[in-house]
Design a protein around this nucleic acid. Structure first.
Length: 401
DNA sequence: CGAGATTCATGTGAAGTATACCTTTAGGCTTAA
DNA sequence: AAGCCTAAAGGTATACTTCACATGAATCTCGTA
């Protein structure tokens, strides 16, 4: 009992955080450093909504963690505040991330997600897509209002589905008597617009804003500002901020990463009851973040995907095999299926699964031609050994029920 | 020796199938008057 | 008679299969210098 009390006591006393939320990714700060220009542009584009006028569709480019989503949300909140002040409540912002697997990676699911955000109910399957569209229309068209759809990671969605669903969305305005839809597309890829249907391009790209990556100095500013509010005084050792910023700057200036890094480092320091956050915590935090992210992905992968991954793991361990190809993986996969009494999928399907892993960044699998030996994918695992071991554990546990 | 032709192992696209789940509808049962 | 429940009918999305064709460089073939 005393031991537990000790733990609790130390937890209370060694609390390094003043306000941890400040470092969490859904936190929206009052002002966004080094994004004044972009925020103003977003604001001036969205401003007509205050008078109930149509706003231009907006398209935003920028790498992850450059403040795109944040800026849009920030401005959105401000506009909502202002509207409340003016006594109007007929604008709504709906935010959907198109990349989240199992949430919104098909046209149907994105639409369903939008409807759910708006408070509607939609079954997870079974409805014809046009029915879903017409329910969406019914839901919003009952009163005069303006819906601003923010589609994050829209490039992912278009890659998976096709671009005409965006077109359908923009065209939906013709069916609407009262309500109005405006789109804000957010994309990581700069080249996304280039291979788009011209109609979509012109309607979505009425206004465009680019969010350049933060450089190390700007990252430091951001981190300092947040750290002041998140941590108690004098907790950070010299150079901690700089190090966080440097790591993140290397990752194309991803501020979210930098903040995560700082937060996790803080949690780690707290757990070991250290009074300060030192440089070593950052290094550990970096590994931990990477590992957790990967393991989360792997753990939530469907069974068949895990079987394939198990095959890849096993093959990568056989020292004689330096490279592996789709065929090898498939053969071994079949063996594993037999052992675990699982259903065996076709090679066609496995090929798709492998390329999905490639996209997730778990493996590296470019298509190569081996001349007379045909064409195949050369598969290489890119996980660090520690992550791999842990991942193997998870998979084994999941497969040997 | 070099230009084509061949070849291999699989990539990739299209179309079809099984499954799980949805809505609607009609019939049967219960209930209340 | 009205209301409620259930089962059947009719329909869809998704994950997967089947079929068929596309790929692209190492290797082979063969004509020519």
């Amino acid at each position: 009992m005393d031991r537990l009390n000790q733990i609790f006591d130390s937890f209370v006393n060694y609390n390094l955080f003043k306000d941890k939320r400040v470092l969490q990714s859904n936190y929206i700060p009052e002002s966004i450093a080094h994004r004044d220009g972009q925020v103003e542009m977003v604001a001036s584009i969205l401003a007509p909504s205050l008078r109930g006028e149509r706003i231009s569709n907006l398209f935003i480019y920028g790498k992850t963690g450059t403040g795109k989503t944040l800026s849009v949300r920030h401005v959105g909140d401000k506009i909502l505040d202002k509207l409340k002040e003016l006594g109007q409540e007929n604008v709504r912002f709906v935010y959907v991330n198109c990349k989240l697997k199992k949430v919104a990676d098909t046209e149907y699911r994105i639409l369903a997600e939008i409807i759910r955000e708006l408070g509607g109910k939609i079954p997870s399957t079974g409805l014809p897509t046009d029915e879903v569209y017409s329910r969406f229309v019914d839901l919003i068209d009952n009163k005069k209002q303006m819906i601003v759809l923010v589609l994050d990671e829209i490039d992912q969605a278009v890659k998976k589905i096709s671009d005409n669903f965006i077109y359908t969305l923009t065209r939906l305005n013709t069916d609407l008597k009262n309500a109005q839809i405006n789109l804000i597309g957010i994309s990581n890829s700069l080249t996304f617009m280039d291979n788009l249907d011209p109609r979509v391009r012109s309607s979505l790209g009425e206004e465009e804003i680019v969010f350049p990556p933060y450089n190390a100095l700007q990252l430091q500013d951001i981190l300092k500002e947040r750290a002041d509010r998140a941590f108690k005084e004098g907790i950070l050792e010299e150079g901690v901020i700089a190090k966080c910023a440097a790591y993140a700057a290397r990752e194309h200036g991803d501020a979210r990463r930098a903040l995560d890094l700082l937060r996790v480092a803080g949690e780690l320091a707290e757990r070991e009851q250290s009074k300060k956050i030192g440089l070593q915590h950052i290094d550990i935090a970096k590994d931990k973040i990477e590992r957790d992210k990967m393991l989360d992905i792997i753990e939530s992968e469907p069974r068949q995907f895990q079987l394939v991954l198990a095959a890849i793991f096993a093959l990568s361990e056989k020292s004689e095999v330096k490279e592996m190809f789709t065929g090898d993986v498939y053969n071994y996969y079949q063996e594993i299926c037999e052992k675990t009494r699982s259903e065996v999928l076709t090679q066609r399907r496995i090929s798709d699964i492998i390329s999905e892993f490639d996209m997730l960044g778990i493996i590296n699998a470019p298509v190569i031609s081996k001349g007379r030996q045909g064409r195949t994918r050369e598969i290489k695992l890119v996980l660090s050994p520690t992550i791999k071991d842990k991942a193997k554990e998870i998979i084994n546990k999941a497969l040997y029920l």
